[in-house]
Every structure is written in C-alpha cells, then in structure tokens.
Design a protein around this nucleic acid. Structure first.
Lengths: 264, 264
DNA sequence: GGCGTTGCGTTTACGCCGTAAACACGCGGG
DNA sequence: CCCGCGTGTTTACGGCGTAAACGCAACGCC
C-alpha cells in the first residue's frame, strides 16, 4: 500500500521517505515543555501549513502553543523576524534530506538534480510557506532566491567551479537555475494550494461561488481539462533536464551561450 | 540625451516610449476631482510603487487621495479586492502597449517575444507591485500566473494552436512560458527592489547594518562582483530564446519533447 | 531558613488596522 | 418646498503587533 506507485510523484510528501516534516512541535492542547525558538518556529510552520499564512498572528500562534502572545517575544524579536526564521527553517530541511548532498560526489548534474528535487520536496511539503521563500527580502541583496542560505549558494558555486565552469558561467548558471526553480515551484505550489485553500466557505453548497463568465474564452474552456491536468512532475523533470543540457553546453564551450547555431 | 544607449535595457521604464505608467491620478495634495474606482486603483499603484506594499493601508491611501479611508469603500468592497484590482490594472497595461499584440501577425515566436517583453516592462515599471501578481490567488484556479487575465490566456492558446501546436503542446507551452516569466521576473524585480527598498533607515550612518559574517563563504565573497552584476536583460533574452527554440522543437516534432538524443 | 536575583510568562496598555453603521450634506425632480 | 439619493465623514468595534510593568517560581548564597 505505501509502496510508491508507478506514476507517483517522487517528490510528493507521501510518496517517499525523504526528509521534510521532521520537526517535533507536539499537539497544541498539550501546552507544556519549555518554549524556545525552535519550537516556536516549528509550530509556526505547522500552523501556516494548516491554516494558511494570513491566519498566522502572534496571538493565535501563542494560543496554538498554549501561551500568551507576548511570551513569544522572549524568543523572537518580532513577527517579521519570525517569518524570516520560518523561511530559514524550511530551507534548512535540505540539510536533513539524505538525497541531497552539499558536495557533488557524482558530478555536477547529479548534484543539481538532487538539489532541485530536494527543494521541490520542500515546496510540496509546505505549499503555504513556499511563497514566503520567494517573497521575503534576502540576507544578502544579491543572493535572493529559493536557495536562500548563503551556505547553499556557496556550495552551488563551488560545485560548478570545481566541475570546470568558469566563474562567470557558474554565476549565470546559478541565476538560471534559481529562476527556474522559483518559477516552476511557485507555479506548481499555487496551482495545488488554491484547490483546497485554507480560507474555506463551509456553506451548504460550496459550488457556484462567482463563476466568472467563461463564454468569451472558448479555447480556455475547451482546454480546461488539459489546463487543470497536473503534470507538474513531468514538466519539472523536463525543464530541469533541458536546463542541465543548456548548462552542459555552456561548460563545454567555456563561454556564455548564444543560442545554438541553428540559424544565421 | 533621451536616446537609448547602445546597451540600455529595452524594457526599462526610462529606456523606451512604451506603455506602463499611463494612469493619471494627479498629485496627492490636490484632493479634488470625483473619486472613482479607476482613480483609486491608479493611486494605489502609484502608492505601492513609491512606498512599498506593506505601507499601503486604507487610511493612508485615503489620505493620499485627500479623503477619509471609508470613502474608498464606496468604490472598493475591501482591501483584498483593491489589491486584486491593482494586479488586474497593472496587467491591463499590456493592452495599451503598442508593441504587444493580442493576435500573432508575424508568427508565434514574434508573438511570444513581444508578450514576454511587454510583461517584463510592466514588472520593471512596478517592481513593488509585481510580487503581488505572482502571489495573489487567481480568478480561475488553473490559470494562475503572470498573464492573469483569461483574455491573455485565451489569446496565447489560440495563437499557438493556430500556428500548428497540438492542444497538449499549447498547454504545456503555456505552462513553460508562464513559469519562465514568473521565475525570471520575480527574481529580477526583487534583485532591483531590495537595493533601494521602501523601508529606509534614515540614520546618520546608513552602512554596516547587520552585515552577516561572510567569512565562511569565500566563493560567494569572491564572486560577489559577478553575483551583483546586473545582466538581467541579456539573461532574460537568452532564456527566452532558449525556451522558444524548445517550443519550436515541440512544434516540429508534434509531440511533447523528451530531451534530445544526446545520450542513452 | 531567609533573601535577593534571575528567567519566564502574564497583564495591561497604546496606536494602528480593516471595516460596519450612522450620520451630514448638497443637488436635481416631484 | 422637500424629499430622496449620491457622496463623503464620523464614530465605533474588535483584532493586530508590541512596549512596559508586573507576578512568580527556582536558585545561589549567607
């Protein structure tokens, strides 16, 4: 039963035994056990995953931990800082993922593949948190995106440079890789997230909310089955492999690529 | 003086005479002239561009328009709806852009090129607004990303199908294109935006804020000049052209691509 | 045992937020 | 004349983030 099916998404939370969802954080009612920063952050992640980001307030998070809101301020200087901590904590799950390595033992393609899937696993495990990863101002203005921690940026750059990339190529690879991950995962997560959104309308008949008039968009209507089909895993894989091929070219030609010689 | 320099970014707000920034909205002090939804939305965009998203409150926006906050509610049902309107308005700038066409007159590549640059122009013109475009729940759960309006999705799909794409190929092209735009532009915008962020610290010495310890990340430090170098325009162009080439393959082979026969 | 200190959580309070509801007021048609 | 209606204001409420003061148990030290 719990064996992965043929077409199961290898990065989906239930689909494998990987990392993600490792923090303790205990039940909300059982309000014992010393408060501390880690417990607060873990609880916040759990809370966001369950109730959605806008539902997270200091008072509610306090209640979730069986404590007054102000108690949190002994461990967290502000709500903003708490959100930063949430992002950092979530990204840190990469370190606990046995399939992702800080050092490329089997070549840079393998390294990038594993890293990408690791990040995807995190995104899928915390769909409500991931947009925060994309949106929060970074530690250093220039690193920016999903691999927020400088340690991963360092690891990325070293891996590629050690594999023969020039410094320029490594940096531009980092940018391409980042924006690919960011774009694809943000899209995927929000596609999933909206279906069962946190804010629910428990009305008797949940259907027919506003139902925008689709009659002017016949193609959209006709392709709606295709559009709502979820082939994220395959698309991710394909785009990722395309990116890796592109990088391979960059590496081999030792320069920034200028579209293949297919014309001109 | 105002002629675009050789290497000027063709999508930067000052670099060309395109659309973007077309709304009237008049000065804040001059608080006359009938309030209406358009004026409110325009003012909100202006406000966000100037002060950043978190600074936008109903009261402040009211003040910006020379009016009490509650007056806005006669034209806007809620703050959430106002933000939706802001996103919609910003995307609607596409219609006013003379370089972007709803119908592909010169082939689908030209169509996609123009569309992509049009969206990029909007992103660069409203860097503080753009993350909202990425983050807000969509009208229809499955369209999701930057081309939020169904009209553009319709246009996109029709353009590709008319050019010979299969329905499946058109949909998957839409996804690839969307996530590319989203990822790249979000990254680019946030890279720009952070430098001169809205929340300023007007302290005497603006430097040396926290300055995380970079000593453990020598490669990051060494490549910092490269990392902070802004080659967004070139990278955008390259990634876009690569995407178009990929789509060309899809079209020619009439199937979803499975990585070139470079191995296996 | 008495007693200051220290650490953790609570209480109280403030100003700002989004917004519901009642209100003030100018203007065009019976 | 006045009556309704459209438009903006006033007032009010509950919830927010958080500063400041407080209560109180555990502990070290004499």
């Amino acid at each position: 039963m719990s064996e992965p099916r043929e077409d199961a998404d290898p990065d989906s939370p239930e689909g494998r035994g990987g990392a993600a969802a490792v923090l303790p954080a205990a039940a909300p009612g059982s309000g014992r056990g010393a408060l501390d920063r880690r417990r607060i952050l873990g609880s916040a992640i759990e809370f966001i995953d369950a109730q959605g980001l806008p539902a997270l307030t200091m008072r509610r998070l306090g209640a979730h931990l069986g404590v007054e809101a102000m108690a949190l301020y002994r461990y967290v200087p502000s709500r903003e800082n708490l959100l930063d901590g949430v992002v950092e904590t979530v990204i840190d799950e990469l370190y606990g993922d046995p399939d992702v390595h800080l050092e490329p033992g089997h070549g840079w393609q393998d390294y990038l593949q594993r890293l990408a899937h690791g990040v995807r696993r995190i995104a899928l495990a915390h769909p409500e948190v991931f947009p925060l990863v994309a949106t929060r101002p970074p530690a250093a203005p220039w690193v920016r995106p999903p691999l927020r921690s400088l340690r991963w940026v360092e690891s990325f750059l070293v891996a590629l440079i050690d594999s023969g990339f020039s410094q320029e190529a490594a940096v531009s690879a980092y940018r391409a890789y980042s924006s690919f991950l960011l774009g694809h995962l943000l899209l995927e997560v929000s596609q999933k997230g909206v279906a069962v959104n946190a804010e629910d309308q428990p009305e008797g008949v949940p259907a027919e909310q506003e139902a925008v008039d689709l009659s002017q968009y016949p193609t959209v209507v006709r392709l709606e089955p295709l559009l709502s089909l979820d082939e994220s895993a395959a698309e991710f894989e394909e785009a990722l492999e395309n990116l890796l091929e592109r990088l391979e070219l960059v590496l081999r030609e030792g320069r920034t690529p200028r579209r293949g010689d297919t014309r001109d």
